[in-house]
């Protein structure tokens, strides 16, 4: 039995090794191709050497830009994070309020749920030209794109989870004399907050996608702006570190939300192994 592959488990060191392997393989592939292209053409921009990337990172992250006097990476990061934070905050608020309302109040559910379901099926990118025209080219249209992209998902998810609250809990609260408002604040809200945070974690990917797309089309700063700007002259030495930086931030946000959930709702993991 022990010989079957499904029963063989890597140890702690083994898990680390197997986890690192794909990263190392990608790195090795990159270095191989990069070295080959650079041997043929020392100015190749497609797969720059790690040393070139490092120089560019120093310039972007620690040296003020010659023309504007700003340090580009931080300006871009601040602009993008502000847009993302607005988008996520507004979506979370909408998700919480509309989700709870339509999950708990049958009349609101009857009125809202088909509409939200239809809205959630509109591809947000297809709306982009309309958004630019109605909300201008500034921050607002970018935030609105994120909201349109992820709020319907949050609303539907929360509404379904409210509906899934065991009815005996709601009935028990009512027999104890709770008003609708008290049921919301004492029963529904505490149950829903961790679910909202989980749903937000799942929305991070789409939120970044919409942010970068909006920045690519019209912007003065931002991570997506920079990537699509330097694409014009094939500056992979800028694009690759930016992609890595975005990935790192997305990972940290996911991790942070998970930690927040553990902290604010410790009962969630209680009783688990």
């Amino acid at each position: 039995m022990g010989l079957r592959i499904i029963n063989r488990r890597p140890g702690r060191g083994g898990a680390l090794f197997w986890g690192a392997l794909p990263f190392l393989a990608v790195l090795a592939l990159y270095l191989t191709f990069s070295a080959m292209r650079l041997a043929e053409n020392p100015n190749d921009k497609l797969l720059p050497a790690l040393s070139t990337i490092a120089e560019t990172v120093v310039r972007l992250a620690f040296t003020p830009d010659q023309r504007t006097g700003q340090v580009l990476l931080w300006v871009d990061t601040a602009a993008s994070l502000a847009r993302l934070a607005w988008g996520l905050a507004v979506s979370a608020a909408l998700g919480l309020v509309i989700g709870i309302a339509s999950g708990l109040v049958p009349y609101l559910r009857a009125g809202l749920s088909p509409f939200v379901a239809v809205v959630s099926l509109i591809p947000p990118m297809a709306l982009l030209p309309i958004l630019f025209i109605s909300f201008g080219l500034d921050e607002l249209s970018k935030v609105v794109l994120i909201v349109i992209g992820i709020a319907p998902f949050l609303i539907r998810d929360l509404a379904m989870r409210v509906e899934a609250i065991p009815p005996e809990l709601v009935i028990k609260a009512q027999t104890l004399g709770a008003s609708t408002w008290q049921i919301i604040t004492r029963l529904v809200l505490p149950t829903m907050l961790p679910k909202l945070i989980d749903a937000l974690r799942l929305s991070l990917g789409p939120a970044w996608l919409f942010l970068i797309s909006a920045e690519a089309i019209a912007a003065q700063d931002g991570l997506g702006y920079r990537i699509f700007l330097v694409r014009r002259y094939l500056a992979m030495d800028v694009i690759l570190p930016y992609v890595a930086w975005i990935t790192l931030m997305a990972f940290l946000m996911d991790w942070g939300l998970r930690a927040l959930n553990r902290r604010t709702s410790p009962w969630l993991t209680r009783g688990m192994a």
Binding site: P129, F132, I133, L137, A216, I217, A218, A219, Q220, Y225, F228, L229
Partner: peptide, 11 residues
Amino acid sequence: VNTSDADIVSV
């Protein structure tokens, strides 16, 4: 403001 050529007219 960097703007895609495809969107310049509508903008």
